[in-house]
Amino acid sequence: MAGQDAVTGTSRVKRGMADMLKGGVIMDVVNAEQAKIAEDAGAVAVMALERVPADIRAQGGVARMSDPDMIDDIINAVSVPVMAKARIGHFAEAQILQSLGVDYIDESEVLTPADYANHIDKTLFTVPFVCGATNLGEALRRLTEGAAMIRSKGEAGTGDVSNAVTHMRRIRGDIARLTSMSPDELYVAAKELQATYDLVAEVARIGRLPVVLFTAGGIATPADAAMMMQLGADGVFVGSGIFKSGDPVRRAQAIVQATLNFDNPDVVAKVSRGLGDAMVGINVADIPVAHRLEDRGW
């Protein structure tokens, strides 16, 4: 589709795509079969990757973009949008993913970073990007680089929701502080946040990020999803939490229902029953600092 006046890859088209995912659950899948299970359960999109974060942690080694054949299989298996991960700074992986026709790229700290100084210049792409953030400054730097959606990072592959909570509360707290500042204080706030003044002023004015804010990293139960939604997330990424659990089909459905009915404890209680074992968790505090993902991204 390319009429003379049709414009692709605009900020509105990229950010708008994320708006369509709001209130939904995006699930990590490693093959077409899992993608079908996720779609059947009501996932609003799937994230194609070679290993879920829990396996990346367990197996170690360098984690990279997935095999294009596998991504093709997943694209062909489902009708919901398909996202895929590129390493931080690895613009060639992102170029490949765009060429494969993925609907969204996650420039993700879950994979081993390719560049320890620079992120991908996402303004150069037609496909939209989602990036992780642990605080407002980080989120705004990603937006300046062209990200069209933000997710709080959390600590992927742990089943420990505490970092997701910390990061979501921090982002929301940082925003709340900006909204209470007088205009002349915003210049220093921009300096301290290491973000552009225009973005800082915009956030102060509208009282939220100018893009959709999902949560990620450690969500393993319906209650986790409901809590993160109540803390202000627009939607939920679930990684290892579903397919590393005892009954992925039921758990996937339950997390979708809990995300939709996050403000209705009766529903969340009902869907929390009979789910079998949750993924075996790792406490974030027990992870050596060098293996924590929250510090990847700058």
């Binding site: 589709m1 692709t8 795509m17 009708s79 026709g101 609907d103």
Partner: peptide, 15 residues
Amino acid sequence: RRNAFGRQVDSFEID
């Protein structure tokens, strides 16, 4: 027809 114009990279705006 769903997704009639292609995938997300084909999404567009126009007058």
